[in-house]
Design a binder for these strands. Structure first.
Length: 430
RNA sequence: GGGGUCGUGGUGUAGCGGUCUAACAUGCAGGCCUGUCACGCCUGAGAUCGCGGGUUCAAUUCCCGUCGACCCCGCCA
């Protein structure tokens, strides 16, 4: 007897198979019943010839069903299973606190998150993470194909990268340590080893923010590449990476896209660029919004610029480049011709910043000088600085926020919806 | 760190000084139904309206506090 799953049922039409999953819903028609079986991929209609056999089966119970796969135009998938036996593997002891078999989980976000292992059973909730997983494996596969090596940097660190304000302190066997807010230093150092590296890992920000686009533990998709000309190489690679990931999602996640009614952008050849001052010019001229020279883009500006990119430049993505030194960390490479700006960029996607990147300083002397300029002590960066004494090539890289890009891809209102178990200002469980 | 909005059966909402003995939908329980797909129909159970205090003849409704949730700004991915 073959174990089948809902993805490939059409191959088994006429055959008897085993299906395993959860009782999604039972439609008791009196003499017979429809049992909607939710397996790991979809919901299959199972016809139960005698309704009594499933009448007392609570929803969400785990079952094993043996039956014949029959082509049936009246069934939702165009086929259904005529059950010969239903075996109860694990009975649901209670009713779930919300209705998992509704088209949409119509519950408050906090209830969804309080009961995360249950709410994730909802087909739409589950679909979000299948798409996120596809994005992340596309990231890995693409970069591996481009000669990158995957690295795993420590998440327990002695110093921060950006100065120290937003670090979570931890007690490391009596010593003071922190949760890493970025793999920045490690991936740069590893450029000196592997040439090109990437990392998929959680990072930690101790900011007490309470917004729909921040969580305190998020999945950072990082890469760093050596021997570049400048930051344009980093951006060019990201364009190709995104095009690859989008086409993979469109190819492999059609079920999830349909379920979520997601509009996954067409992979695009190139992404337009605006310098930060050009972007501000657009904001002023087109939207009457004024930002000072030293201001970063605020959330409203990001939304307006995305709107502009879509309507005027025909792009869902927009690179903003040439950030001033004052808005970037100490490792950002200053421009040769205009040392007050850096060779750095952000990527806006559907109104939100989803990437920050740029060329880094590879010159030891310049880096030390910059650390001092930022009011930091080079001695506390000893381990970071060491490889820079030994031929660190010109390099650059970026970080993509996995939950952010997933949320924008699927038009989710809150970043928490794109995180399995979000950690925020007041959530530490489940 | 600053600001705003909201807490009513399991869930989602309505009601916003008395006529609330709190409504509707869904879920749940019992019954009927051989093609449902938001299945349908009948019957029933289920909420002292987040918590504490105050105003008032009278508070789910107004005020204060508190707890919780959500959102915006700052900061960032």
């Amino acid at each position: 007897m073959k174990q089948a799953d809902s993805r490939y049922l059409e191959k088994f039409v006429g055959e008897t198979v085993i299906l395993t999953g959860w009782v999604h819903r039972i439609r008791d028609m009196g003499a017979f019943a429809f049992l909607l079986l939710r397996d790991p991929w979809d919901v299959v209609q199972v016809v139960i010839p005698e309704a009594e056999t499933v009448r007392d089966l609570p929803v969400e119970s785990a079952v094993r069903i043996q039956g014949q796969v029959v082509s049936e135009p009246r069934a939702p998938l165009g086929l259904e299973v005529h059950a010969q036996s239903v075996e109860l593997l694990s009975k649901a002891l209670e009713l779930p606190p919300f209705e998992l078999n509704k088209k949409e989980l119509e519950v408050s976000l906090s209830l969804i998150l309080d009961h995360r292992p249950l709410s994730l059973r909802h087909p739409r909730q589950r679909a979000i993470f299948r798409i996120e997983a596809e994005f992340v494996s596309s990231f890995r596969d693409f970069l591996r194909g481009e000669g990158f090596t995957e690295i795993f940097s420590p998440k327990i660190v002695a110093t921060g990268t950006e100065g120290g304000a937003s670090l979570f302190p931890i007690d490391y066997m009596g010593k003071k340590a922190y949760l890493a807010q970025s793999p920045q230093f490690y991936k740069q150092m590893m450029v000196g080893v592997f040439g090109r590296v990437f990392e998929v890992g959680h990072v930690y920000r101790a900011e007490p923010h309470a917004t729909s686009r921040h969580i305190n533990e998020y999945l950072s998709l990082d890469y760093e590449m050596g021997f570049i000309k400048d930051e344009q190489d980093v951006m060019e690679l990201e364009m190709r990476l995104l095009a690859y990931a989008l086409s993979r999602i469109r190819e492999n996640c059609s079920r999830e896209i349909r379920l979520l009614q997601a509009k996954i952008p067409e992979p695009q050849e190139s992404i337009p660029q605006l310098t930060l001052s050009e972007a501000k010019e657009v904001l002023r001229k087109k939207y009457g919004k004024h930002l000072e020279e030293e201001d970063d883009l605020d959330p409203e500006a990001e939304k307006l610029l995305s709107e502009f990119a879509l309507s005027e430049l025909n792009s869902e993505f927009l690179f903003v480049t040439s950030y001033p030194v004052s808005l970037r960390p100490m490792y950002a490479m200053p421009d040769k011709d205009n040392p007050s700006i850096t060779r750095s960029f952000d990527l806006l996607f559907r109104g939100m910043e989803v990437t920050t990147g740029g060329q880094r300083i590879h010159d030891y002397g310049l880096l030390v000088q910059n650390i001092k300029k930022f009011g930091l002590d080079p001695e506390s960066f000893d381990f970071y600085l060491e490889p820079f004494k030994y031929g660190m090539p010109p390099h650059g890289g970026l970080a993509i926020g996995a939950e952010r890009i997933t949320a924008r891809l699927l038009d989710l209102e809150n970043i928490r919806q794109a995180c399995l178990f979000p950690r925020d200002i007041n959530r530490l469980t489940p």
